[in-house]
């Protein structure tokens, strides 16, 4: 029985995506109508400078936000796993996990109002834009990185680090030559997760992005209100191929390790 539900569930997850991918190669202007094989939507995509510009901005933003999120989330995960009991730990844990579950509308509005209040009090940030969006995405991503890093630290125990210290390594050396290499895979995974979250986000971008920071999902969302376009389907194919290659590379690296 479970096998059949699994098959049906996977079909449900994949059917819209596969259909979209097939019809991206259709010549018809109407979505999901077959009008003969054509590359025309991919060609249109390559010439759509607004879309490409938004995609470029989204890639840079996601990379920056993921890097910042890895640093902050790594520190948060470290404190949760290694600092034992300290005053306010329960509250610390709740705040660390909040970005994972809070509705994005609440997070988005909250960060926007914070930025507005900060600007009033200190003059910074000057309006909304890429900078405020970067911080918003980093705040979201850090929650996910913290969970991944905390799980890894709790799983790997202290034995190897203690052994290195017993053999005379200084704390900095232990961290650099034992802890960090053991932690690296989860930091990379957390970075990837934070990257995807940022690259896929509509709501936080809508609240904290401002006019100068139209990301790819935001642009697609505003166009989608007018109805789906075959160009968007072509973009989905490109996106899926890149994601599939990334995941394969990930699996291959994981097997070699």
């Amino acid at each position: 029985m479970t096998r059949w539900v699994l098959a049906a569930g996977l079909a449900f997850l994949w059917a819209p995506i596969l259909l979209m991918a097939v019809f991206a190669f259709s010549d018809a202007r109407q979505p999901f109508v077959w009008g003969g094989f054509s590359w025309r939507w991919f060609a249109a995509l390559a010439e759509n400078e607004r879309l490409l510009g938004a995609a470029g901005l989204s890639l840079l933003l996601a990379a920056g936000a993921a890097t910042l999120a890895s640093l902050a989330g790594g520190a948060i995960g470290w404190v949760l796993a290694r600092h034992g009991a300290f005053r306010g730990r329960a509250l610390f844990a709740i705040l660390a996990a909040a970005p994972l579950v809070l509705p994005e509308v609440v997070t988005g509005l909250a960060l926007l109002l914070l930025f507005v209040a900060l600007q009033r009090l200190t003059g910074w940030p000057e309006g909304r834009g890429v900078m405020t969006l970067l911080l918003a995405h980093a705040a979201l991503g850090a929650g996910y990185v913290a969970v991944v890093v905390q799980g890894r630290l709790a799983g790997m125990g202290l034995a190897l680090e203690e052994a290195a210290a017993d053999l005379g390594a200084s704390p900095a050396m232990v961290f650099r030559s034992v802890t960090l290499p053991l932690l690296a895979p989860s930091l990379v995974a957390g970075w990837g997760l934070a990257f995807l979250l940022s690259f896929d986000d509509v709501v936080l971008a809508g609240f904290t992005g401002g006019p100068g920071a139209t990301t790819l999902p935001l642009l697609l969302f505003s166009q989608l209100r007018m109805g789906p376009t075959p160009e968007a389907h072509a973009l989905a194919v490109v996106w899926l191929v890149v994601a599939g290659l990334g995941l394969s590379l990930w699996g291959w690296l994981g097997q070699r390790r």
Partner: peptide, 11 residues
Amino acid sequence: MSAGFVLRMAA
């Protein structure tokens, strides 16, 4: 999940 949230909605 990595196929783009807005694009899945478009589908």
